[in-house]
């Protein structure tokens, strides 16, 4: 199994629904020249759940590493990082699915029905980026305590970002953050 064959399966199943495909090879200077492969592609949020479902069906027990996300300005981009084919020397392939969510409709589907371990990441996405995960089994806060102001999302770069409550300890001594 290599990155090409994994991608081939995805192309066959999803056709033009997956876009911006890149395969990244981590450089290596040692004699054996073994390298890890990383696949990146975008998928529409409507198809995210079926893409994860396909992944679980084709490669039993994919490892869900984490979901990262960031603010691109008009949209929020979520990146679901999976790894498959572990247990084989230098055979593990990291698959990252990007999902774009427009800021006026920040909703996505839960994947906890397929991978229960994803719940921590989904709760984190909700509190850090202010998105809504549909049908999430547990939507309480996790990393932020209850006294943290509502409506402030630490990873956002717009007016809902943390800049207004952030504090520079050294600047505060001289009289306010600049």
């Amino acid at each position: 199994m290599n990155a090409e064959s994994v991608l081939k399966g995805f192309r066959k199943e999803f056709g033009s629904k997956i876009k911006d495909i890149t395969i990244q090879k981590v450089p290596n200077s040692l004699k054996k020249k073994l390298f890890a492969e990383r696949i990146w592609f975008s998928v529409g949020r409507k198809h995210l759940h079926s893409a994860v479902e396909y992944l679980c069906r084709t490669y039993p027990d994919p490892h869900f590493a984490v979901c990262s996300g960031y603010d691109t300005g008009k949209e929020i981009e979520l990146l679901y990082h999976f790894t498959v084919n572990y247990g084989v020397r230098a055979g593990e392939i990291t698959i990252t699915m990007r999902v774009m969510l427009p800021k006026n409709d920040l909703q996505t589907d839960t994947i906890t029905d397929l991978i229960p371990g994803a719940i921590i990441s989904e709760r984190e996405m909700q509190e850090m980026l202010g998105i809504k995960v549909k049908d999430i089994p547990d939507s309480r806060r996790l990393f932020l305590d209850d006294t943290f102001p509502r409506g402030v999302f630490p990873w956002r770069k717009d007016e809902t970002g943390p800049d207004k409550i952030a504090r520079n300890v050294h600047a505060a001594r001289k009289g306010g953050m600049k």
């Binding site: 630490p154 800049d163 504090r167 300890v169 050294h170």
Partner: peptide, 15 residues
């Protein structure tokens, strides 16, 4: 003593 490397944050009340 001085919040060290975490001098700038939204979640820190120290030192």
């Amino acid at each position: 003593n001085s919040t060290g490397v975490f001098y700038e944050s939204y979640n820190i009340e120290g030192p």
